[in-house]
Amino acid sequence: MFECPNCNGKDLGKIGTQQYYCWNCFIELSVYENELMVHQVESDGSLSSLDDLFTEDERKIQW
């Protein structure tokens, strides 16, 4: 398993195929070609990208 790039926590729950949720900082993570796409879940259930807050290296998955 990998760590959350935001809080470095390992308390991740699987919510779908290649989709995870961090229970420490409440963000959604999607895996695409060994890179994470990071999203904030809005109050209406939509997702806002947080990818621009992290470098490409921070979003690389270290299995």
Rank of each mutant, 00 (worst) to 15 (best):
E56G: 02
K14S: 11
Y20D: 00
E33W: 06
E35V: 08
T17E: 12
L53Q: 04
E42I: 01
F54W: 05
E42A: 14
S30K: 06
R59C: 11
V31F: 03
N34Q: 11
S43P: 02
T17G: 15
F54K: 02
E3H: 06
Y21E: 13
N6R: 02
Q40E: 14
I27S: 00
E35D: 06
D11N: 15
F54A: 03
G9D: 06
N6W: 00
W63M: 07
E35F: 06
D57E: 14
W23N: 07
W23P: 00
D57T: 14
T55F: 13
V31W: 01
E56P: 00
E56I: 04
C4W: 00
H39R: 07
N34T: 03
M1H: 11
E33T: 09
K14R: 12
E28A: 11
Q19E: 10
D52F: 13
H39D: 06
C7P: 02
N34G: 05
W63S: 03
N34D: 15
M1P: 01
R59S: 07
Q19K: 13
E56Q: 07
K60R: 15
I61W: 00
G16V: 10
C22R: 01
C7R: 04
Q18T: 12
V31I: 09
E58I: 08
M37L: 15
L29E: 00
E35M: 10
E42M: 10
C7Q: 09
L12E: 02
L29M: 05
Q40N: 15
I27R: 00
N34E: 11
F54Q: 00
D52E: 09
Q40Y: 14
C4D: 00
W63N: 10
D11W: 12
T17I: 14
K14A: 04
S46V: 11
R59I: 07
C7N: 11
E28R: 07
G13I: 03
Y20A: 01
F26M: 08
L12F: 13
G16R: 08
S43M: 14
S46F: 09
E58C: 09
S43G: 12
L50E: 04
G45M: 14
Y32E: 15
D44W: 08
K10T: 10
C4R: 00
Q62W: 05
